[in-house]
């Protein structure tokens, strides 16, 4: 039981680049030696900026793409060793929620048909029992059962994301990976979907991997967090600890860059280097305010116990600035916000 539900070991995925004549021209080193474990019933967040490899990692974890090297174990079973038929059967246990609810639903399929599809595919309910299961799933995500007869275009972005979540839950998965599941939504609608995800994770005992660049949402729902930079993990640990006492300079820079905390100076200079030719040594050294000669030469290893960081200097860095609660609205605002509590079913 203590065995993790999902275990990634030394995963690597490079996407080869070719020029116009089809000749090999290097590779995008999207994921470069990642090891992670996700305990049952917990939420792991993978954070990082665009191009860090977090989405590729999510797809590798579900074996939607094949790694160049490394292993993926789900419930103790090596996914790479499974036959295609066995993998298909396993799919009901692992689902993915995408960022864009507009692209992930087939416009020619009613909402009910879209949710029933995985039920049929995996022969989960007996013939004729689909309608009631679809109705149940719709209610579970806060939509009216009558929505089953309607078409995706009749729904707002937030409602479509609820439909996509219902479809992902249809097969009764044990592991759900959400790839930026709320990023395409407006702020007020994001809160509705974050509340829904938190409920589902708790009530269904889901194991959830949240891929996100939104550190507020990560802090809100993750138990553990892994920070990625240029294809590898630079820090990993309990979310509360990583946010309160980040050990890697990149994690510190990410936290300092979150707007709304009165920090006006940019935390670090420059852009993320190209994943085609990542810097030697520590990949962050080109932007790191603390870098030394060693950092330019030797790649650091992800070290430490329950809170790991890949930084040569992690024991010598000055303490990270504290995250103080900057809430000018205080008690009055909290009391007013208490009126904004969801009633349950949404239109």
């Amino acid at each position: 039981m203590n065995e993790p539900l999902l275990e990634l070991r030394d995963l690597r995925k490079h996407f080869p680049l070719r020029d116009a004549l089809g000749r090999a021209r290097g590779a995008v080193r999207a994921v470069d030696g990642v090891s992670l474990a996700v305990a049952r019933g917990t939420v792991l967040a993978i954070v990082g900026e665009s191009g860090c490899g977090k989405s590729t990692l999510g797809r590798l974890a579900l074996r939607l793409i094949e790694p160049d090297a490394g292993s993926v174990r789900f419930d103790g079973e090596d996914l790479r060793a499974l036959s295609p038929a066995a993998l298909r059967a396993r799919r009901r246990d692992m689902q993915l929620i995408f960022q864009d609810p507009f692209a992930s639903l087939d416009p020619r399929m009613t909402v009910g048909a879209a949710i029933a599809e995985p039920l049929r595919l995996h022969r989960i309910v007996p013939r004729g029992g689909e309608a009631s299961r679809v109705a149940e799933l719709l209610e579970r995500v806060g939509l009216r059962p009558e929505s089953a007869q309607r078409w995706p275009h009749e729904f707002s972005g937030g409602q479509r994301q609820r439909i996509a979540i219902a479809r992902a839950l249809a097969s009764g998965p044990r592991l759900v990976i959400g790839d930026e599941p709320i990023s395409a939504l407006d702020v007020s609608v994001q809160a509705q979907v974050v509340n829904l995800l938190a409920d589902l994770i708790r009530d269904l005992g889901l194991t959830f991997v949240l891929i996100s660049h939104d550190l507020g949402v990560v802090r809100h729902i993750a138990d553990r967090v892994a920070v990625m930079y240029l294809g590898s993990i630079v820090e990993e640990g309990a979310a509360a600890t990583v946010f309160a006492a980040p050990r890697h300079p990149y994690t510190r820079a990410l936290l300092a860059a979150v707007p709304g905390r009165g920090i006006k100076a940019p935390p670090i200079e420059g852009d993320v280097p190209s994943p085609i030719a990542p810097p030697a040594g520590c990949r962050f050294h080109t932007r790191c305010p603390h870098a030394e000669a060693l950092c330019r030469e030797q790649p650091p290893i992800l070290a430490g116990g329950d809170h790991r960081a890949a930084c040569h200097l992690q024991d010598r860095l000055p303490p990270a600035p504290p995250l103080q609660e900057a809430e000018p609205g205080g008690d009055r605002l909290r009391r007013l916000q208490a009126f904004f509590q969801p009633a349950g079913t949404e239109a």
Binding site: V187, S188, Q190, A191, Q192, V194, N195, A198, I201, R202, L215, G216, V217, R219, H220, I221, D223, A239, A240, F243, L255, V258, G260, R261, L323, Q324, E325, A326, R334, Q337, F340, Q341, P342
Partner: peptide
């Protein structure tokens, strides 16, 4: 509506104003 990185007063998984 937007969760904060400091963690809200309600703590992890608490309900956001919606």
């Amino acid at each position: 509506a937007a969760p904060r990185i400091e963690g809200g007063p309600g703590g992890r998984m608490s309900r956001l104003a919606s």
